[in-house]
Design a protein around this nucleic acid. Sequence first.
DNA 1: TCCTACAATGGACAATGTCTAAGTCAAGTG
DNA 2: CACTTGACTTAGACATTGTCCATTGTAGGA
Lengths: 138, 138
Amino acid sequence: MSDLLERLRDRGWRMTAQRRVVAEVLDGEHVHLTADEVHARAVVKLPEISRATVYNTLGELVTLGEVLEVATDKRAKRYDPNAHRPHHHLVCARCGAIRDVHPSGDPLADLPASERFGFTVSDVEVTYRGVCPNCSAA
Amino acid sequence: MSDLLERLRDRGWRMTAQRRVVAEVLDGEHVHLTADEVHARAVVKLPEISRATVYNTLGELVTLGEVLEVATDKRAKRYDPNAHRPHHHLVCARCGAIRDVHPSGDPLADLPASERFGFTVSDVEVTYRGVCPNCSAA
DNA sequence: TCCTACAATGGACAATGTCTAAGTCAAGTG
DNA sequence: CACTTGACTTAGACATTGTCCATTGTAGGA
């Protein structure tokens, strides 16, 4: 993740304690936090960080393509730091747990020209839904 | 769509003017309204209908499987009355226009057991993103 | 027609996200 | 190293979307 900080500095990002903390919080695999969850964790490391800054920083990271917004949850946006390895998501319909998954095949190729309605299609987001082992056991 | 009203009556739904209006508003192809858009259109036909009733009715229609919630928009839930014909969505990244599309192939089959992490996978939602003809012309 | 359970209402509340004005500070410059 | 400047942060007001509840209304059966 320090790679990330490097890349951002190279792109002219001013490096502040707040931004560093947000980047740290987002580090890891299978991380899919909402903005408020990011804020909650950031506050632990840097108590005076404000909500607005977290929202701003997340927005910038998304614009820069370093973090993805995913819509697995219909309430709040979630942020996925794993932006450089293409993947999709598997969501538990009961507890909301999210895993990154890598389906075989290319869904983009599955959309014939006749179904594109003149759109220039550039991206696909696939969300699998089901019940996770924990929840199906209970 | 009157089929819908029939089906609902058969299931013991009490038929009220409000519910009829909500069902009418949702009639059609490529309809993907937010709850507040549904409310706005319902008010035209029945001025005293309340927001709460629209939300309740939409929630019931979803529970009954007559309408789908789709997460193409990251702000608000959208409601898709085309619940009985499986399909996916193509969204314009600029103007937000949404089309129903029917990709070939079955994305469910593309998720190998090794990528299921013990989940019982039951459903897939595919969202294609791109730029629609109108927006790319501009 | 009358009853009653179910539905609708409206307004308070909650959750998520956006904006602004004012203060603060990172980092380049001399 | 101190200075300067414009980008960054802050707190809190505001906006949007969604939920809840107590009260009032009404669909549809007896």
